[in-house]
Amino acid sequence: MSIETEIQPVGSPAVGAPPAVAAKCSASRRAVALGAFTSAYAGLVHLVVAPEHLGHWWVFGVFMIAVGVGQIGLAGWVLRRPGTSSAMVGILGSLAIVAVYFVAHTRGIDIGPAGDDGHGGGHDAETAGPAAIAATVGELVTIGAFITLLPLMLRRRVVNLLGALGLGAWALWLLGGLG
């Protein structure tokens, strides 16, 4: 059974539904609202810091704007059409952004005018500032909220994948792979 059929439209509880089903719908609505809110919040943070990144290199700035607009758009989409598809897009999109954040602030990403041709320049791992941390926390909450919207089997796979990624990151750190 897909989640599209599980989740009632926000604001219209199932009339005469059993208490357990009603509670499940209510929890799903809260998850949708929380995930949408944190996604929009992370998107706003990205838009706020976009001018600063534009100053470094226009591609960085455009990336920030695209991420910000995408996260706010995702929030609207999930609120309008809550379901497995929008939840999975939210999870994978947020995960990708967290991954970029993780690499940029541990190893550094060697692209941009200082790193053209894979040579020259030299990009340090960036210092994680308050805005970056705030956006990342928002994205992690988004992922956690949207996971609860997934069907059981898919949900189990996604959680296992995230757990494995987390363990891998910690192992890399312990082995000195993150410097």
Binding site: G163, L165, G166, L178
Partner: peptide, 14 residues
């Protein structure tokens, strides 16, 4: 499981 992933994502960059 999510705690392991989330803590790695936040703590290791920090």
């Amino acid at each position: 499981k999510l705690g392991i992933a989330g803590s790695a994502a936040v703590a290791l960059p920090l």
